[in-house]
Write a protein that binds this DNA or RNA. Structure first.
Lengths: 103, 103
DNA sequence: CATCTATTTGGCTAAATAGCCAAATAGATG
DNA sequence: CATCTATTTGGCTATTTAGCCAAATAGATG
């Protein structure tokens, strides 16, 4: 399913999904400190490098990350500086979590 | 995996995941206009009511929704008014989408 | 140009998620 | 209290996603 022909709603979901996996969220949070190369991110996440690469591809295709090749390495960075406010909302919700069980 | 004993990172991911599915995102967007009951949301989403109910349970357990029983109906509402800024960031990213394919 | 390094891609298996139907539950109402 | 309505739960199948390994690729370097 090519993202270029996706509906606005599908693209929104793809962006959110790109941040919904624990490893991918960790990657995004780490990139708030500046760009990192794939091998740095592999250390960070602690998974096979091919797994990390696939996470990065998914995030890039969703529009969340940019990448740039310099020398031997490929450096990934956040496509938008709004991640902070995104996470501020997430944390507000995550703190409350599970309190309401009326049903 | 009980959410009460989850790490902060797991709870964050659960919140984001709760908004990452197209039907669930639609539900959340609709609730920005005020609370709705399960049968309203069933119409909106157009899936089996049991499917909708499971989406709602997941969102509630993640902390994204609250619910309240009144009369025969159960009304769901957003647990936090920050969804607007959350989506503002998502849309910034969703617009850019897929532009960068250096690799 | 042969080789080395960093990264991606293909292919596979295991695990998680989504959706439907049928059955159970809880509370309202006659 | 029998029944009705709204919703949830259980159980199942199909689809999607995650992760590993091995192989391919792209560009840098001797």
């Amino acid at each position: 399913m090519p993202l270029l022909t996706a509906t606005a709603s599908e693209r929104r979901s793809a962006v959110i999904k790109a941040l919904a996996h624990p490893s991918r969220l960790l990657i995004a949070e780490s990139l708030m400190g500046g760009e990192l190369c794939v091998c740095d991110l592999k250390e960070l996440v602690g998974a096979d490098i091919s797994t990390v690469s696939k996470h990065l591809t998914l995030m890039r295709e969703a529009g969340v990350l940019n990448c740039e090749k310099r020398g031997l390495n490929i450096f990934y960075s956040l496509a938008c500086d709004c991640l902070g406010e995104f996470l501020r909302c997430v944390d507000k919700l995550a703190c409350g979590g599970n309190k309401n069980t009326c049903c």
